[in-house]
């Protein structure tokens, strides 16, 4: 699978969990890997690339870290949108 397509799948996976479950890196890697039949390392790489450009972000709450879709506020702070 092309990286861009895989990243869209990862994004969709995160979107589906939004407001329901706080996803850890591991949840995304295992979940998407099983769902799309892609090696976990590929998912990890694709996900990291998304985090590096602010398409996804790390969050912290409830005593643990998670990966989420960034808010507009975050993107604005990082200068990624005006």
């Amino acid at each position: 699978m092309e990286t861009a397509e895989l990243q869209d799948k990862i994004f969709a996976f995160c979107e589906a969990a939004k407001g329901k479950k706080k996803l850890k890196e591991k949840d995304i890697i295992k979940g998407v890997s099983a769902e799309q039949n892609v090696p976990p390392d590929d998912v990890k790489k694709a996900m990291r690339a998304m985090i590096d450009v602010g398409r996804l972000m790390y969050s912290y709450g409830g005593g643990a870290s998670s990966v989420e879709i960034p808010s507009e506020e975050y993107l604005r702070e990082k200068g990624l949108i005006k």
């Binding site: 985090i51 590096d52 450009v53 972000m57 790390y58 969050s59 912290y60 870290s65 808010s71 975050y74």
Partner: peptide, 16 residues
């Protein structure tokens, strides 16, 4: 406590 503070690409090192 908590929230979405951090530097781009990292998930650790900054505590909100």
């Amino acid at each position: 406590h908590g929230g979405i503070v951090g530097v781009l690409g990292y998930g650790g090192g900054i505590i909100g």
